[in-house]
Design a binder for these strands. Sequence first.
DNA 1: TAGATTGTTAATCGATTAACAATC
DNA 2: TAGATTGTTAATCGATTAACAATC
Lengths: 213, 213
Amino acid sequence: MKTKKLASVPTIKRLPLYLQIVENAHKEGKEFISGTIIAEELELEPIQVRKDLAITGIVGRPRIGFPVAQLITCIHEFLLWDKEHSAIVVGAGSLGSALMGYDELKKRGMRIQAAFDSDPAKIGRTINGVPVFAMNDIAQEASRLGSELAILTVPPDVAQTVAEQLTSAGIYAIWNFTNTKLKLDEDIVVQREDLSSGYAMLSVRMKLRLNQT
Amino acid sequence: MKTKKLASVPTIKRLPLYLQIVENAHKEGKEFISGTIIAEELELEPIQVRKDLAITGIVGRPRIGFPVAQLITCIHEFLLWDKEHSAIVVGAGSLGSALMGYDELKKRGMRIQAAFDSDPAKIGRTINGVPVFAMNDIAQEASRLGSELAILTVPPDVAQTVAEQLTSAGIYAIWNFTNTKLKLDEDIVVQREDLSSGYAMLSVRMKLRLNQT
DNA sequence: TAGATTGTTAATCGATTAACAATC
DNA sequence: TAGATTGTTAATCGATTAACAATC
């Protein structure tokens, strides 16, 4: 088995930015795009773009740049966005509903099969085309659907309990939108999505901006 | 004017995590909390927690830890979360609506004064207590309200145009939830909130997990 | 050809981690 | 006192950036 050098976290997080630009170039009918152009668009250094793209296995042509169609494929494959990921949304509040209607995710291979909520008014209905089940049926339904991933948008006080139910039902990855640090088996992938850290950055930069004068 | 050493981006992003734990400790009536405890809770290194907290100006007591109440104040002040930030939501779709109802932000000083949308069905109504105005009235209303910050949740194709209107109306900071790279004056604070980078991390980690076997 | 761009190897920079004296 | 914890100074680690030969 080949031991590939792992990509760094910052690199992985930049790949979707590159992908978007390359897809735009593709729509415009361009066959090649240079790292220099991508870098300008995102206000990054060209060398950083080249280094990042290299991780996907793409090979560019000096003087010409990278083949657009192939680059899209390489990024997709690297991120596993060429395969479907089955997912359920747990907590069909406003954030959960927003995610169910988020086309970007669907385009990137995420298939949201079902949602779960404890509000009787929501159970049995569909939101953005996704059927809503009772929270109590999670274990049963998630097993039946064979879902890989759970998008967790429940209130923080039930997050830990619900997460444990999910793992029992065979879910091995959780996209955690609650601000609860989940304590689960090590082999469960938990990705925390933290709005407050973005808000912290924003606030500090606003403070700096105000102090400039 | 004292030239403070700037905090690093990773440090700033971790501060809200610390804040949450310290606030919990406060609710439980604890007067002191050690960096070691905080680190355990978040699965970080104690030295990292101490270094991060130091940036806020807090002074701890050897053997005892950090004074809880004072630490909360220090983090709040550092993030400017002790002051109110006036904000408007531009694009009252599902994500915009979710943010209007997000208590966390309100607790951190964000005051959402108004929302804007081009859908006539929404204009004139209120969502989560926030009045919705017509998109055409942005310039006028934002100036009148004196808003500092705009939360941008419009479709990507109008993002740039709307952003320019916002800056003309005196807005100097934009929390950009669209996947459009905005091209604005350098003195405008643009904080991009990128769901796709989180999804990229999640996908790669799921891939690794699957390859483990 | 001339010159822009790739990809590799080396240098730099900055964040994390380690070591340890000071402290209560 | 003994021992846990802070805060400072130094060491390490890894990401970014620079330099440059190879290429078309």
